[in-house]
Amino acid sequence: MTRSIAPVACCLAAACASGSAVRQRADSIAAEVKGARDLNAEVCAPRELAAAEANLRFARLALDQGDSGRADAHLGTAAPAAHEAVARSKECGKQAVVIKNKPEPQAPVAVATTVTARDSDGDGVSDDIDRCPELPGPKENFGCPWPDRDGDKVADREDRCPDEPGSPENQGCPRRATALIVVRRDRIELKQQIHFQPNRARILRDSYEVLDEVAEALRDASVTVRIEGHTDNVGKRKENVTLSQARADA
């Protein structure tokens, strides 16, 4: 009787030892499945996670029924599925971090731009208001050069001889080869008459140069001079006398 009981006891002991090892393996796989869930395997590796969990449950059920062989077979399927779920979840997690840390596109910033009006002749007057866009001129004359009838580069408005070319230094008048005045001991003789507008006391430009020479001669002289103004004999005497005085005062 003793001989027949011994082999059975040995078999039971071996089965218990085998079942314990399978249960430890199941616990190890269960820990790996939990780790996969913590890594968001439900999103990153749902198929692998489901396979691992299902086979892990089947293995535990087989162990409870004392069938360690069938349990071990289910664990053989659960283990690689759990391992793959962990691997996929880790890779998926890295991509999620990269996407999360990717800087959000910023709204375009409006940059103020300055539009410069065209100025073809570079005179500081834009073409849209420049009456002479191809010729430089002052703003006061709407971008056009001042008239210069004699072409001596002295504008008529500043030229004392607007119809006779001269130099800017001589206010647009030519320098005379002969003097316009002669300074005597007791008088200054004018070699050119002083011209006035008809019936007015306004001096004409062509007389400016001779008057400048008179002024230059008187600047350094300590003398008293008498200036006379004349008219023609046309018209009433009283009016001519008044005009003569006005011309002398001019």
Rank of each mutant, 00 (worst) to 15 (best):
E216P: 11
S68R: 10
L180M: 13
N199G: 07
A78F: 01
R226Y: 06
G19R: 11
N170R: 14
P147M: 04
S4H: 12
Q245D: 12
R157S: 09
K34D: 13
A85S: 03
I188K: 07
A15G: 14
S4P: 02
D156I: 00
K236N: 15
A15T: 12
P105L: 13
G76W: 04
R237I: 07
P174L: 07
A6L: 12
R70Q: 14
G151M: 10
K153V: 05
W146L: 11
V33A: 15
T2A: 12
V98Q: 13
A62W: 00
R118P: 12
A155F: 08
F196G: 04
T242P: 01
N55P: 01
A215T: 15
P133R: 02
L56K: 13
P7T: 06
S207R: 06
S222L: 08
V210G: 04
Q106T: 13
L135V: 13
L56T: 13
L190K: 02
Q65Y: 04
A45V: 06
R184M: 06
V43C: 03
V125E: 09
R88M: 11
Q193Y: 05
V234A: 14
H195I: 07
T114E: 14
L61W: 06
I129E: 11
A248H: 00
N55S: 10
V86Y: 00
A30W: 09
G66Y: 05
R226M: 09
E164Y: 03
E216D: 15
V97C: 10
Q95I: 08
L75N: 07
R157V: 11
R237G: 12
V111Y: 05
P162H: 01
A6K: 12
P133G: 02
A9N: 09
V241G: 10
V214F: 01
I194L: 07
V241C: 08
V86H: 04
R200A: 11
N40A: 09
L39I: 05
A62P: 00
P136K: 07
R226G: 13
N40W: 09
R25Y: 08
E216F: 05
H195R: 15
G235H: 02
V154C: 00
P168V: 11
G172Y: 03
A45E: 02
E228G: 15
E53H: 05
E140T: 14
R205H: 07
E169W: 04
G143M: 00
A9T: 05
C173A: 15
E228M: 11
E140N: 10
A248W: 00
H230F: 07
T231Y: 00
D38K: 10
D150E: 08
R25N: 13
A96H: 10
E48Y: 00
T231I: 03
F196R: 10
V33H: 06
I129Q: 12
L204P: 06
C11P: 10
G93M: 09
